[in-house]
Nucleic acid binder design. Structure first.
Length: 445
RNA sequence: GUCCCCUUCGUCUAGAGGCCUAGGACACGUCCCUUUCACGGACGCGACACGGGUUCGAAUCCCGUAGGGGACGCCA
């Protein structure tokens, strides 16, 4: 059986870490099994859905390297398909009209809660008489429609949570059609999952109760429910909801503001909450190969944003020039060559840091002219051009011999005079990058 | 309030009654390498939420307590 999955964001905002994790894990699962991964845009809420968000979601996924099969599907284009199913469900009585206003329903819930009862819909609409209905209609009320749940136990074998059971009595009949006649998420989602032959639904555990009602909907529509995998929600370092620092950032911000590499994000999101260690892989292959739902824990893991930054640094330290070059060109650093990259990359945390090192080598530096006598003496001992990787040792050996200095007293003043900083790349490789002219100039203040 | 899920080193976890003096990864510490940073290597620190049971024996099973997460929308 070919596995078919989908990622179904609603374009009502930017995609954040939590959503991105679901998108990624679903994708890894699909790719691991050589299955399909569909992108479905859940835009039934016309008020809040915006094309700019759809564009941002696609751009974010593409940047992350999460590709989908075929064209994206919009729910707003599928209204005819929904209408057919709606007619069937009305005909067989699974969809029934209700006339309560939102305020009345809120009141009912409040009253149940006050009596320590679960706020389940009382199905009052089912016992409405024709006269009462006519009275409501005369008032100008339009019905919304609920799906009538069967009073049977609902059980499924969740790929992550194991056997999940629900008592139908504790669930409210879900509203599937709004008063204005537009269909709601539950209805559209189930119909689409049937029509697109989705075999596995992967989503956050905030959907487990929905799944219970969806299973009855699948059955009411004559379909076999797919398999489900409900991911524990990721929580903040403080244990609360994801809300602070990187956890609240959109993909666009992770990319543009935080300057993170896609794989720095992916490595963390793919492995967080699993038994596999988080590693700095520079491609998806190892993540796809090792993917298995059984490795996910059932508890909510805490997300430490710093982990992404650490991984980002490691990825840059290991990055070959060929891979960095397109990025550097895009940043306008077309003059950076392999030698410069290899010299400087161990000191990078984020790609943009390279600009600072470029300026240290090429731009003017602000150094404090300490130890001027020593630096002056060292300047006169510089070997003649051309310089190579051995020049530094030649030079400092001579300086050591003539001045009697060694260790930190010898090297640190030189580093400071040459770079204006007390840390940085290996000076043996940095010196040739500076070249005789700049070196002389800096040594002379 | 009701229902569901979770609780092992700082963090992510392994662990499905004796293989556990509880294993790994990251972080942290010390040392080695080193002019610095980083890399690499070695070693180390460090946990079964609490209280009762069951059992010859419990991190593992049961009950309770506490803490955390989720759900209970004419949102998705």
């Amino acid at each position: 059986m070919t596995i078919r999955t989908r990622f179904a964001p609603s374009p009502t905002g930017a995609i954040h870490v939590g959503n991105l994790r679901t998108a990624l894990i679903t994708w890894l699962f699909a790719r691991h099994h050589g299955g399909h991964y569909l992108l479905r845009i859940d835009d039934t809420d016309v008020e809040r859905s915006k094309d700019v968000f759809t564009d941002a979601i696609m751009a974010g996924l593409t940047w992350m390297g999460i590709n989908w099969d075929g064209d994206k599907v919009h729910q707003r284009d599928r209204m005819d398909a929904y209408a057919k199913v709606i007619a069937d469900l009305k005909a067989n009585g699974r969809l029934y009209p209700c006339y309560e206003t939102a305020d009345e329903l809120a009141l009912k819930r409040k009253s149940l809660l006050a009596r320590s009862l679960p706020p389940v819909y009382d199905r009052a609409a089912l016992s409405l008489t024709d006269t009462q209905i006519k009275a409501y209609e005369a008032e100008g009320r339009k019905p919304h429609w609920r799906f009538k749940l069967n009073d049977t136990p609902i059980v499924w074998n969740d790929l992550i949570r194991g056997e999940v059971k629900f008592d139908g009595k504790l669930l409210s009949d879900p509203v599937l059609i709004r008063e204005d006649g537009t269909p709601l998420y539950h209805l559209c989602s189930v119909i689409d999952d049937i029509d697109f032959e989705i075999t596995h639904i992967v989503r956050g555990e905030d959907h487990v109760t929905n799944t219970a009602t969806h299973i009855q909907m699948f059955e009411a529509m004559g379909a076999t429910p797919p398999q489900f995998a409900h991911l524990p929600l990721v929580s903040d370092a403080e244990g609360g909801k994801l809300s602070k620092r990187l956890g609240s950032l959109s993909v666009q911000e992770l990319r543009e503001t935080e300057d993170l590499e896609p794989m720095a994000i992916a490595n963390v999101l793919a492995r967080l909450g699993t038994a596999d260690p988080i590693e700095a892989y520079d491609s998806y292959e190892p993540l796809i190969t090792a993917f298995d739902f059984s490795k996910f824990s059932r508890g909510s893991p805490k997300f430490d944003p710093d982990e992404m930054v650490r991984l980002n640094a490691k990825l840059l330290h290991d990055m070959p020039f060929a891979k960095a070059q397109p990025r550097l060109n895009a940043m306008g650093l077309t003059q950076v060559d392999a030698m410069f990259w290899d010299t400087v990359k161990p000191n990078l945390e984020r790609m943009r840091d390279i600009k600072d090192w470029w300026n240290v080598v090429n731009g003017p530096i602000t150094g404090t002219a300490q130890d001027a006598d020593f630096i002056g003496a060292a300047a006169t001992l510089l070997p003649p051009a051309p310089w190579d990787a051995t020049t530094w040792k030649q030079w400092t050996d001579t300086v050591k011999e003539k001045t009697g200095r060694k260790g930190k007293d010898l090297f640190m003043p030189l580093r400071q005079a040459l770079t204006g900083m007390d840390h940085g790349p290996e000076l043996a490789t940095l010196l040739p990058l500076l070249g005789p002219e700049r070196t002389q100039k800096r040594l002379k203040g």
